[in-house]
Simulated scan of single mutants.
Amino acid sequence: MGNIYKESFNTAKDIEIYEGIRIQNSVHNISFKTLVTKLENWDFVIPDFSQVYRWTEQQAEQLVISLLRGFPIPPIYCYTNKAGQQVILDGQQRVISLYLYYIDKFMENTTQFINQKEIQNNGKSFRDCIELCNLRDKRYYTHFWSGRENEKENDNGNESGNREVKTTEITYSKLSQPVKNRIDFSQVTMIQINVDCKNEHYRLATLHKIAANLNVKSKP
């Protein structure tokens, strides 16, 4: 996990529960197109302690396939900062992967630091920020079995009939407009975390604790 959640885990070691804090969660869905648009406009931001992208190309591809096929995708957890932006506590890798798919790109080398704060302060977009991360063109594909639906097993226990694996390109810019429209409206679940506390230090510490808990990895 490296330094991805270092700040969160260091904070989490010092606190468990503060008195006088109320935590509420609300669930809502947004479309894929809305998500990437809000990311470009800095309505969604990634906290400083989570700005390294570390997913493999295969992980990103499987996420895209899940989106296109309507498979469940884990929710994205966020909270609202003083600027009114949605800060992503958990789901950074999924969000960045979806954005890279949207622009037909992938990072040449992962584990790169995304210095979005400096880019934002200079009046530029998230696209400008991500373009600094040594991107390369990326074509996305999916593979599926093709054959007759009502196939029967033969004496050897194998399915009879002509079945083969077919490959289809699903790169976003190459999709037909009807398919692209369907993907644009595909829903992504967001869980909004609201920490009600008068003490801003306690509020942020609690959010760091939540981020740490969300990203705990069980040892094998």
Rank of each mutant, 00 (worst) to 15 (best):
Y79A: 10
K124C: 04
Y5K: 00
R182G: 03
Q93N: 08
E200Y: 04
Q85M: 05
Q86R: 06
T189S: 14
L204Y: 14
L39N: 06
R54L: 07
I73M: 10
T189V: 13
E149G: 07
E151S: 14
K38C: 06
T206G: 06
Q192H: 12
R163Y: 07
E7A: 09
R139A: 11
N81D: 15
L132M: 13
Y140E: 14
G91C: 10
N134M: 05
C129K: 00
I210Y: 02
N181S: 13
Q116I: 10
V52H: 10
M190E: 11
S160H: 00
L214Y: 10
G2S: 13
T80M: 12
H201T: 14
I23M: 10
K38N: 14
L63T: 11
R127S: 12
L67G: 07
E108I: 09
Y5N: 12
N10V: 09
I73C: 08
N162D: 15
R127G: 01
T142I: 12
I193Y: 01
N29V: 04
F49K: 00
W145K: 02
I191D: 11
T189L: 07
K117D: 15
V216Y: 06
F71P: 08
A12V: 01
S146G: 03
K174R: 04
A212L: 03
I15R: 02
V36L: 03
Y141F: 15
S66C: 10
N213P: 01
K166I: 14
T111W: 03
E108V: 11
Q112P: 04
D196S: 12
T110I: 11
I103T: 08
I73K: 01
L132V: 04
E61C: 05
K117V: 10
P72W: 05
N134W: 00
K105R: 13
W42K: 01
L207C: 09
L207W: 03
D155F: 03
K166V: 13
W145G: 06
F9L: 06
N162F: 09
N81T: 08
Q92A: 09
F144C: 08
L135I: 09
P74Y: 04
F126S: 08
V64R: 00
R139C: 07
Q192K: 01
K33N: 12
E40Y: 00
L100Y: 07
C133Y: 00
G70C: 10
T142K: 04
R203L: 12
V27R: 06
T11M: 05
I65N: 10
C197Y: 05
Q85T: 03
I130K: 00
N122E: 15
F71Q: 13
T34G: 02
V45K: 02
T111C: 02
H201P: 00
E164K: 02
W145M: 13
E169L: 01
K117P: 03
H28Y: 14
M107D: 13
R94D: 14
L35D: 13
F106I: 13
Q58P: 00
S218M: 04
Q93S: 06
L100C: 11
I119S: 13
P75K: 00
K198G: 08
